[in-house]
Amino acid sequence: MDFYYSLAQIIGFHALLGLSAYVVLLTGQVSLAQAGFFAIGAYVAAMFTVLAGWHLVPAMLAAGLAAAAMACIVGFPALRVRGLMLVIATLAFGEAVRLFFFNFDYQVAKGEVKVGPLGGEGFRQIRWFPEHGWTGLDVMLFVWTVVALVAGALWWLDRSRFGAVLRAVGEDELAAQSVGLNLTAVKVTAMTIGGFIAGLGGAIYAHYTTHIEHSNFGVLLATFAIAYPILGGLRNVLGTIVAVIFVQGFLVEGLRFLGDWRNLLFGALIVLAMNLRPNGLIDAATARRLARLFGREARRA
């Protein structure tokens, strides 16, 4: 049973990562920086719980705010460019964050052992969950409460005026600008919200694995982050969560019997999927067909 709890936790923090990319993607921006914000969240939260002895919840909020602040700062220069230039800029930012943590030493003696991030060796012994006697089930419920809160907030956001603004910028920047929307403000806000969500996800990740190091937060994780909303489609938050369950539950866990070959298959599957379904697994036509299956949705559309 613990295996399934653990899997549900993995799906939980990957869902937060995917949702963070979803918000940014709504405004039409492809950001490969989400893994960087995830890393900031992971390190900040772990430093608060391990070094400062905080409770996990305030530490998570602090991690989210730190990642959001970073996203806001990065957003201004990065969002001056669009499209492929933005992909490159955010990729470089993500790598810069990873390299920063590769060089980051901050160790404090705690009893006989020294704890804290130690450059290339990473940050060990983030043991808040076991120290406070949380079982796998408790952690899973906690993770999914956070996911539900975030997904619910985004669901509400999607239906609010601001959600319409985000989508307007994503559909056509020129048209959005000509009706008086401030593009920079909208994009930076989306980036900041995305940073906050990624920070929360990172905080959970750090406490799930108990050991984080810079190599966890590379290009592969950034690719995962944007792959979820692209695979799941941008109609609503559920698409992203379904995509996470599909990728983490089926592709990553279900194909474990393939051993080393699984990693080879993963890249090949992305290439194949994009050749067969260039607009995502659930593109507009599929979405319409699905909507017709569930009659109520079709009438609304």
Binding site: A227, L264, G267, M274
Partner: peptide, 23 residues
């Protein structure tokens, strides 16, 4: 074989290729 009109598709396919070549 990927339509030029979908910018995300070639981005994703080449990232997939990057992971594949690396592996």
């Amino acid at each position: 074989f990927i339509p030029l009109a979908s910018p995300l598709a070639t981005l994703m396919s080449t990232v997939g290729m990057l992971l594949l070549v690396d592996e």
